[in-house]
């Protein structure tokens, strides 16, 4: 049963990711991306990372995807031009690069010594994450916080009227 659901989620991720890159309309790509992001959240659930799954949804679907669609919407008439690369030499080059990346990823996939993860749901993922963030990874956590604050201030500064 779990397998059936897992295959369903995996197919959702792959198929919608395929639509993201092949759709000729940016908004359609964004909608397909929603399927991918939900599928990845589903994969987190299979890894017993329930908190990560919810974070995935609230940040990527509720935040970043909304921002992408927002940006596309405000850009006038972006739906009309064909967004697919049409120049032949570029396409050939892209094919080579993509093939090399695919080769690298598949060899990585088969060479990595995978070890079996936990098969029993851990007790309370949230408390563990919180404790790790405030003890072992405190500096990383603080640095990430400062970085995000800087990004926020920078965006506010750039969008002020006198700076165009």
């Amino acid at each position: 049963m779990g397998n059936v659901v897992f295959i369903g989620v995996a197919v959702l991720v792959v198929v919608s990711a395929f639509f993201v890159v092949t759709a000729r309309n940016l908004v359609y790509s964004a909608v397909a991306l929603m399927g991918t992001l939900f599928g990845v959240a589903g994969l987190y659930v299979f890894l017993y990372a329930d908190f990560m799954a919810a974070v995935q949804i609230v940040i990527y679907v509720g935040g970043i995807l909304v921002l992408i669609i927002f940006g596309v919407m405000l850009t006038n008439k972006i739906a009309t031009p064909v967004l697919i690369q049409t120049s032949m030499p570029n396409r050939a080059l892209a094919a080579v690069v993509v093939f090399l990346i695919f080769l690298g990823l598949t060899t990585l996939l088969f060479r990595t010594p995978w070890h079996e993860g936990a098969t029993v749901a851990p007790e309370g993922t949230v408390a563990t994450i919180g404790q790790a963030l405030l003890t072992k990874y405190l500096i990383h956590f603080e640095v990430a916080g400062v970085l995000l604050l800087l990004a926020l201030l920078g965006a506010a500064y750039l969008s002020r009227r006198e700076n165009g």
Partner: peptide, 25 residues
Amino acid sequence: DFNIGIFYVIAISSVGVIGIILSGW
């Protein structure tokens, strides 16, 4: 009954706005 119940509800209701944007656009 999720372990992360309250966070789940907030997370999943933040998706609804995409429906509003898509129907508006």
